[in-house]
Design a protein around this nucleic acid. Structure first.
Lengths: 241, 241
DNA sequence: GATAACTTGCACAGCCATGTGCAAGTTAGT
DNA sequence: ACTAACTTGCACATGGCTGTGCAAGTTATC
């Protein structure tokens, strides 16, 4: 008695194609937030026309991306806490690193126009967490006090995105990338590199286990990312400059 | 005997209009590198058609912008040297801060596509200078050694752009902005915030005089930047679709 | 004040991207 | 195997931006 209502249930491959489209969009838009739907469809291995069978407009696709990205990130940050604001910040870095792909799509999309507000709300958990750690770290005398806290938090955020770019571009392995994101974040906050390195080294592996874990399920984007001739095709080296 | 060749010399206001266009382009493209020429013409107070009287294509206008920006920056960096790599890096920061507008236009344009190479070459003096200071600082044990020098230089560069954004956005005064750019650059390099602050404070004013100077001539873009109702006016939001 | 230089406004072509409709396929479920 | 679900390829309307031609203005310069 599956479904007596409709004459037939939706097909399973349709669902798969929908996923493929979202994944493709994630890959393509990370490189160019204004890419055409044709490009997305191509990356997904479908026709442009079929894409409209799943999303009735470009904006609807964007909305889906934003929603998913935001959810992934919130989830990842959900249980990141630590009494030492320095370690807290480092852990945020590690969590973010585990979600690079998502974060970078959001960051890219943020540059656009009308998405700003949506993206902002998607990233707000990160922002809040960073802000809390920053503020605590400044009070404790660890972080620089020569800048208003909001600006500092913003700087750390911006720097983090930059680091993600570099890390991805230079093809660091998981551990190295995570380490870089953590230490540079701390540096911008105000620590010297020796302090940052030492601090990060002192973090018990158990705290990082969640992300460094072997088969950390639910890795939506990873496949797409690996297969991304994307990064290679575009940037080559010019990158940001 | 001005010019016996042509029946009449070009008019002076034409030159002024050309300048206005370039300035407008600088303002508009800094916000949105893909803005239409209509937007540029409007910002310049001219018609789109008139614009084509000065630049035969969009690319020609871009080229002019790139060339000027590159020239300004090279010039600003020409006599930035110091034996202490930390101070060298800080001074680069100060020099860059004096050219924020230019740098930001270039950085924006860099995200585009076919411009990559041109932009890259325009910014190459900065890159080279940063790389030199970075490498020297690492050798001296001041900067972090846990990252390959090229990546570190890249990180510093990226961070600098981020700082410029924040600084401009939060409307810091000249001195504060310069200070921020210098210290955060040093932080990413690896110094603690106390070290960075102390170091920057120790830099004799004479070394900064060049930029902090009252009427440092040749400030091409400053007027345009100040007058930019740009940021406010444009966005509206409709944007794409 | 005559004349060339410059601007404007309009009309036009071309290109590219978005959405949509429809007829003909192909493929998954029952 | 039959049928509905899904995909494809095409055609089409719409809208934005570029680049150009031309006639009619305005303004600097001689």
């Amino acid at each position: 008695m599956t479904t007596t209502l409709s004459p037939r249930a939706p097909r399973r491959d349709a669902l798969e194609n929908r996923e493929a489209i979202v994944r493709a969009a994630s890959v393509v838009f990370r490189r160019d937030p204004e890419a055409s739907l044709d490009a997305v469809a191509a990356e997904a291995g479908l026709s442009r026309r079929a894409l409209y069978g799943h999303f009735s407009s470009r904006d609807e696709l964007l909305a889906e991306l934003l929603t998913r990205g935001g959810a992934r990130i919130s989830e990842a940050l959900a249980d990141v806490h630590h009494d030492d604001p320095r370690i807290h910040l480092a852990l945020i870095g590690a969590a973010i690193w585990a979600e690079v792909q998502q974060v970078r799509v959001l960051a890219q999309l943020a540059l656009h126009g009308p998405l700003e507000k949506t993206v902002a709300s998607a990233l707000s958990p990160v922002r809040a967490s960073v802000r809390r750690a920053t503020s605590a770290g400044v009070s404790a005398g660890y972080f620089r006090e020569s800048v208003p806290v909001e600006s500092l938090a913003q700087l750390i955020e911006d720097a983090a995105i930059g680091v993600l770019d570099v890390a991805v571009r230079t093809d660091l392995d998981e551990a190295a990338g995570r380490q870089l994101v953590m230490t540079v974040g701390l540096s911008v906050a105000g620590l010297s590199w020796r302090e940052a390195d030492a601090l990060v080294a002192s973090i018990p592996g158990s705290l990082l286990a969640a992300w460094s874990a072997p088969g950390s399920g639910a890795v939506v984007g990873s496949g797409a990312v690996a297969g991304s001739g994307a990064v290679a095709g575009s940037g080559s080296e010019g990158g940001r400059s």
